[in-house]
Amino acid sequence: MKTAVRTTNLWKIYPQEPDPVEAVRGISTEIETGDFVAMAGPSGSGKTTMLNMIGGLTRPSRGQIWIGDREITEMSDKDLAQLRLERIGFVFQSYNLLPVLTALENAEFTLLLSGVPKDERRKKVLELFDKIGLSGLEDRKPGKLSGGQQQRVAVARAVVANPALILADEPTANLDSKASTDLLDVMERLNQDHGTTFLFSTHDPRVMERSRRLITLVDGQIESDERRNHSSVSP
């Protein structure tokens, strides 16, 4: 199996008075391409910090990160931006969408940035919308979509350019259980159909339930890392 993400002895120490905060303390791990991985752990255990470091939004204090075969901790900000554009999709807890753009425009935004022609963009997004139950909502502004619909648009935007990796920080935290289930369905389907690697953090046991691998952090270290046997997903 190829590795999508590899970290070695990754540390993040936030300088802070009186004592610096050690948010991530020497994490070494690998995420396989095409995997569907949940990261759990109590509040403050370092989940967001991990995701941000892997996505190149936060620079680690020590250690290395490989995305595919590229080591990113020494990259320039500009190269990191390009890397995110080409290979990483982000989904945050909420307010992922640009308020002035419609659902469709939001979803095609990374394609727009990559210079994909309009027809191709529309085709891809419409297909994706159809697949994840957003058909008919293309022209709505984010303010006129439910929380679950907004998150699905965000996931659509994250996957539309076929990135190698999707990082999602508590994507279901603001959703009710029905919307959470729907979103997980969408993520799972995209994972299976496109082989996109998902790494997401969560507090929700039902979401952890559906991952194929569950990494639990405590105090910035991996406390447990278990492969789960999923009835619905057979490799």
Partner: peptide, 13 residues
């Protein structure tokens, strides 16, 4: 947040 999203998507600072 809007600017954060833009940069997370691949826009430079």
């Amino acid at each position: 947040r809007e600017f954060g999203v833009l940069q997370a998507m691949g826009l430079t600072g």
